[in-house]
Structures are given as C-alpha cells and as structure tokens.
Design a protein around this nucleic acid. Structure first.
Lengths: 155, 155
DNA sequence: TGAAATGGTACTAATTCAGTTCTATTATTA
DNA sequence: TAATAATAGAACTGAATTAGTACCATTTCA
C-alpha cells in the first residue's frame, strides 16, 4: 500500500490541473487527460467541492473551478477531506482516548509520538503551491534548539 | 489505515523489548506482556530473525536475542523487511519504471518526488535508538541551500 | 427536448491486512 | 525417553479497506 491513497493522488492532479485552468474544467476532461476512471474521478471532485476547494457549475458547459489559493491547501487538509487524518499507528487513536492497555509502560510511546509529529509537520507544511512549484519552500519549523540560516547557495 | 502496519508497530515493540532484555525473550512472553496475538507476533519475530535483526534459540528455554545495534536499525529498514519499501503513491513505482502514461506532462511529478524524499529522509534518519530515547536526535539532513546551526537553547 | 454536466447515494469487486492453522524441528527437563 | 516449550516454514482464512460502478435526480444549454 502507498502512503497516499489514489483518491489523494487524483485529488492533487485535479487541483493542479484546475490551477492551470482558471476557467475551470470537467471530470470528463480531466479523466481523459490523465486516463483515469471518470466516475471515480467525478466522486472525488464532488468531495473536493463539498469541502470547499472547488465551486461547481452544472449543465452542458458546467464543471469545476478552483476557489482556494494553492498556498492555503496543505496536504494534511486534502487527506483529511478525502480519507481520514494522518496517524502513524492504530494505537495513535487509542493513545488519545487513553484506551491502549500498554500506555503506562509502552517503551515506544514517546518515540513514536515524535515520529508522528515530524511527518505530520511535513503534511501541514507542504501545500499545493509547493507541489506545483517545488522550488518554493515555505517556512520549515525545527525543534530542539536549532534554527535555520541561509548559506546563500540557493541563489 | 495507519501509516505503519501492525506488523511494523509490533516489530518496534519487539525490538524495544529485546533491547531492554539482553538475555532474550520469547514470543509467548512478549505477546503476554503487550496483549498481542501470539501466533501473529511469532510470525513477525520469525521475519525479524530471518532478516538478521534477531538470533534465535529453539527448545524449551529458547527465544530471540537482539543482535543489531539500535542505532543501526532505521525505520525504513524495518518497513522494508516486514512490508515493502516506503512509497508515496502507486505511481512512484511506475515513475521508476517509466510506465506512467502521464510522466511527460504530469503537473505534480516533481513536487510529489520532493515530498517522497522528505518523508523517506525521516524514515532513514530515525533509528530504534531514537525511538527508545527520543532526546537523542541524530544528524538531520537539509536541502536547498540551508544549513543548521545551534542557537544554544537546548543546553 | 436531448445532451452534458454535477449531486447524492448505494452498491460491488478486488485487494490487502491481520490473524490462524498445521506440520516439522530443536532443545530442555523430568 | 517422553512430555513440553520453543522456533521454522508454509499455506490458509476472515475481515476490513480501497477502488471503482451504478443509478437516479437535477441543472443548464443549445
């Protein structure tokens, strides 16, 4: 299994395509361009619309338009809209609910939590804007008393 | 679905437990301690042994012993041994094989590759040692003309 | 009025995951 | 030497999830 579901993958394609087509596009058009099942893609676009990423127009020349700014759409958001919020392990949920029977003596609890946070940080940091233009890297948050400085080699 | 499979989660428990028990332990013992299905855990321990993480001893007082150093066991290694190597999307494999039909015009190809690399970096950087003691953070590699300096606040 | 689009919901097939089962082998101990 | 407790290896199964379909309704335009 992949980390991103196909829904997630196709959603990114849709959002990217719509960003490049400000006048909008239809499920038919996009499914044809990327050779994706049309009804499946249509379902995904319905969901994206339902969650406020797209606006829709019915009818013969209908379709969808991207209405959120790429820099405001984080991977974590899309994931949550289409599938479920990111979690590292099954027991991540249990831990929040305090139902894990090993919670008092689990040897990996703290360590796993750190890994969870690091991946989650990426998913919240990376936006559609960065997917579209990977040379743009927005704020990177670091921890543990470290800070970032530019050494100028990116110019 | 979680990012880590149960096999992965249980494997980390096993490795952590065995690190704290240098004389070794059995599937029975560990499954009892963490309330995990014994045959399922046994399968996982067989796999870990097969991949060189553990040594095994049969017989009445048999069991397994951790034979690799925690700092040499990266999350990416365990994942590859138990499940399959990390990949962000289905098409990650296609891209390597150059079979993705959209590879010449895919608008998210480069961006996704960047995300893939960032997560993969975490999985290769984080070792069992860090899971056991999260205050230890080994080398963090950064890209794009940035470098790390300490600001001293961690002292 | 017919075609092409979305809206909403329910359904189904295929795959994957989690766990089981079974048999064989090895080692200890009574 | 027989019972027991462990690993070794392989095949199998049930449940859950994912991926994809199907259907019908509604809207819009030509």
């Amino acid at each position: 299994m992949s980390f991103f579901s196909r829904k997630m993958d196709y959603a990114l394609l849709v959002l990217s395509h719509l960003h490049g087509n400000p006048d909008g596009s239809s499920a038919r058009e996009i499914s044809a361009k990327f050779s994706i099942s049309r009804p499946f893609l249509a379902n995904i676009m319905k969901t994206l619309c339902h969650h406020g990423y797209l606006s829709s127009h019915r009818g013969v020349h209908g379709g969808y338009v991207l209405i959120r700014k790429p820099e405001d759409i984080a991977l974590a958001d899309i994931m949550q809209s289409l599938d479920e919020p990111f979690h590292l392990t099954d027991c991540s949920k249990d831990i929040e609910k305090q139902t894990c029977s090993a919670r008092t003596f689990c040897p990996i609890r703290t360590g796993m939590s750190g890994v969870h946070d690091r991946i989650r940080t990426i998913l919240k940091d990376v936006t559609l804007a960065e997917i579209l233009d990977p040379t743009i890297r927005p704020s990177v948050s670091l921890q543990f008393g470290l800070e970032l400085v530019s050494n100028g080699t990116h110019k």
